[in-house]
């Protein structure tokens, strides 16, 4: 129960941040990626601000023996840079550039961004379900 509540707060604050920073607006995101055109640096500030807060916050949090509501920190174990990482990130970047949407903002705007967001979510969630199904072990 406590863990669910903590997750709700986390998701809610995350969503509020995405909306306030206008990352839920595809043309704003494309304006940032339009580096060789009318570049809008706003998103660089979103990332810098988020990164700074997380960098400082993690210094304190990850120094503790365990999180408040769990017995261990669940950190990624992979260390190697491989083709899957680079190929996957490149694929993601192409979809991000085409649409102006990444997973967080796409979900955060799911209820108010019209039929276009439905198309995008159909492709994104459908492909994730298929991927996980094919990669089940």
């Amino acid at each position: 129960m406590k863990r669910a509540l903590a997750a709700f707060v986390g998701g809610g604050v995350f969503g509020a941040g995405l909306l306030i920073s206008q990352m839920t607006n595809p043309s704003k995101v494309i304006g940032f990626l339009d580096f060789f055109g009318h570049w809008d640096p706003s998103l660089a500030l979103v990332m810098a601000s988020a990164l700074l807060v997380t960098f400082i916050g993690y210094r304190f949090v990850l120094g503790k023996p365990e999180p408040l509501l769990d017995t261990e920190f669940h950190l990624p174990e992979a260390k190697d840079v491989d083709g899957r990482l680079i190929g996957g990130a490149a694929m993601f970047g192409i979809g991000w550039g085409l649409s102006g949407l990444c997973p967080g903002p796409a979900l955060a705007s799911a209820t108010f961004a019209g039929t276009d967001i439905t198309y995008f979510l159909l492709g994104m969630i459908g492909s994730i379900i298929l991927f996980r199904f094919l990669n089940r072990t």
């Binding site: 990482l85 996957g88 192409i94 979809g95 085409l98 949407l101 995008f120 159909l122 459908g126």
Partner: peptide
């Protein structure tokens, strides 16, 4: 575009 984001983020973790 959504499928590129979906598959890309799963491969790229």
């Amino acid at each position: 575009a959504g499928a590129f984001v979906g598959v890309g983020t799963q491969f790229g973790r």
